[in-house]
């Protein structure tokens, strides 16, 4: 474990907590894409299939449980909670996630480190996570109103992956033959997709104006 990875995991945890706080305290999910939240629940399910078979460390297992529990809780809140679901903007959140899942599944079947079920699912989860934010970014472009909590949630979600890239550089430099092209390429694409959001988020922070994404 290195400081980059620990900070990354904590940033990721913070993003989920910010979102859960928003939904749980003000009972609203305005501006949040259910599609992205469902994709994240699928990402964690496919990535943590080894939760019962491969014990890495208590930290690793506890964090996997937290990410699985929180991602499914958010989907449950947005779908079934009688108050929260009213603020879900289903007419605007129309990104069809099958368009993201199928190519990622095909790619995972073609490009993976080992052709086993668990490994293909693990690989699929990295490709899918790279693009899972797209429905959310599309929704932001459409609704244009980004409240602070949503903006912070997306910022933290993007920052965690950028920190993982620092972790991967650090491990590549310090650990002999540590090479994992699949997470590296996926993580790079994921971080780049946040690029323009980071740019506008930084501008809104610098000019102290409300965050607005161009149409």
């Amino acid at each position: 474990m290195n400081i980059f990875r620990l900070t990354a995991d904590m940033t990721h945890l913070m993003s989920v907590i910010v979102l859960l706080l928003k939904i749980h305290t003000i009972k609203s999910c305005a501006g949040i894409s259910l599609k992205t939240q469902e994709l994240y629940a699928i990402v964690f399910t496919c990535r943590y299939l080894d939760i019962f078979t491969d014990f890495i460390s208590f930290y690793n297992t506890i964090m996997k449980v937290i990410f699985l529990w929180t991602s499914f809780s958010i989907v449950w809140y947005m779908r079934y909670h009688k108050i929260v679901r009213r603020s879900y903007d289903k007419d605007q959140d129309t990104f069809r996630h099958v368009f993201l899942m199928l190519p990622c599944l095909v790619l995972a079947l073609l490009i993976n480190e080992r052709f086993t079920f668990k490994e293909v699912m693990w690989t699929f989860s990295f490709y899918l996570e790279a693009v899972a934010i797209l429905p959310q970014l599309v929704l932001l472009q459409r609704t244009r109103n980004i409240d602070n909590l949503t903006g912070q949630y997306i910022f933290l979600l993007g920052a965690y992956r950028a920190l993982y890239i620092l972790n991967w550089i650090y491990r590549y430099v310090t650990e002999p033959n540590y090479v994992h092209w699949i997470p590296w390429m996926s993580g790079l694409v994921q971080t780049l997709l946040y690029g323009d959001f980071f740019y506008y988020y930084f501008l809104s922070w610098k000019n102290n104006v409300k965050l607005q994404l161009p149409a």
């Binding site: 990875r5 995991d9 491969d54 890495i56 690793n60 964090m63 080992r114 972790n167 650990e175 997470p183």
Partner: peptide
Amino acid sequence: EEDEGKHDEL
């Protein structure tokens, strides 16, 4: 940390 075939990152 990384045994063969195990993924030690979240």
